[in-house]
């Protein structure tokens, strides 16, 4: 009797996933939106970090343990952006599908050439990431790599829907390629122009679109702006006629506004994550659309 109950339980446990949607957990909203493009309605998607919140400092809430415990696939950056909160959650989630190296654990950065890999690890330089700058997904070329990584994992976890995932991937990459040309064209007139940002998280975007983004309100990564450093930035902006400052939703907009006031410049609200700022709720492509257009507008206005 007991034995047959065990067999019954086993049968239910093994067969259940065949009917269910693929349960996908993404750490941040940018990777989540790409997962949505690939998975469509074949996946049940959960995002851990809020799109408006600082992705370096997300609380490792116990509810996340449950979400990770139920997941078939985890989509994370793999470049230490989530290092302050994800590892402990993963251990507690007890999910073998998400073990290091398992096909269900997607490291999006795999295959991405990370920039700014530090030559030496020295915290006197601020809170640097040992494996390089982790904010790589604002470059649409990298989004293609990420989409491929995600598609590969979905196919491995849900073989019957392979064709759908593959065609979704092709469609996403095609629309990205099309859009990329348009974005390049929009920002073409501003090649070489400098844009000031708060934190060094726009390097990949700048590189893709020919903008210089190496002036920061933070004196060092993770260290809040100081009056002395801001004075330096303002002086440099005045000398080089730099007028556009961008600010993420979780950073101090007042600091950026002070800088803009002192340089007769403008502040542009930006986000790295869909729904981080108004008008980007549609997903990854609308987000880059917003970023390109609002930057082009600001750069065009200030001259």
């Amino acid at each position: 009797m007991k034995r047959s109950i065990f067999v019954l339980i086993a049968a239910v446990m093994l067969s259940a996933p065949a009917f269910a949607k693929l349960n996908v957990v993404a750490t941040t909203a940018d990777m989540a939106s790409i997962a949505k493009e690939i998975g469509g309605d074949k996946i049940e998607l959960t995002t851990l970090a809020k799109p408006t919140e600082d992705p370096h400092f997300v609380d490792a809430k116990p509810s996340f343990i449950v979400k990770l415990n139920h997941a078939d696939v985890l989509v994370e950056g793999g470049a230490e952006l989530e290092v302050g909160w994800l590892p402990t959650l993963l251990t507690q989630s007890r999910n073998l599908k998400l073990a290091a190296g398992a096909t269900g654990h997607v490291l999006c950065a795999q295959g991405v050439r990370l920039l700014d890999v530090p030559t030496s690890l020295d915290r006197a330089k601020g809170d640097i990431h040992a494996s390089g700058n982790p904010h790589f997904l604002v470059d649409p070329e990298n989004a293609k790599i990420v989409a491929r990584n995600i598609a590969e994992a979905f196919c491995a976890q849900d073989a019957p829907s392979t064709e759908l995932y593959r065609s979704n991937l092709t469609r996403f990459i095609e629309s990205l390629d099309l859009k990329l040309k348009e974005w390049q064209k929009t920002l073409e007139p501003f090649k070489g122009r400098e844009v000031v940002s708060y934190h060094d998280s726009w390097l990949y975007f700048g590189q893709r679109f020919g903008l210089k983004m190496d002036l920061f309100l933070e004196p060092k990564p993770g260290i809040p702006p100081t009056p002395a450093h801001l004075a330096e930035v303002i002086a440099k902006m005045k000398a080089d006629h730099i007028k556009v400052t961008i600010v993420d939703p979780y950073l101090n907009r007042k600091t950026a506004e002070t800088v803009a006031r002192n340089t007769e410049g403008v502040v542009v609200d930006v986000a790295q994550f869909p729904a981080g700022v108004k008008g980007t709720e549609g997903g990854y492509i609308p987000l880059i659309d917003y970023l390109v257009n609002s930057l082009a507008k600001a750069l065009g206005e200030v001259k």
Binding site: G78, A79, E80, V83, A100, G101, L107, A109, Q110, G111, V112, R113, L114, V117, P118, T119, S120, L121, A130, S131, G132
Partner: peptide, 22 residues
Amino acid sequence: AIPPVSAPAWSATQPITIARAG
């Protein structure tokens, strides 16, 4: 473990570190 994220060819200018997270 996990294969390296990016594996550029070794060059003389490439930094050498003894211990790095991961």
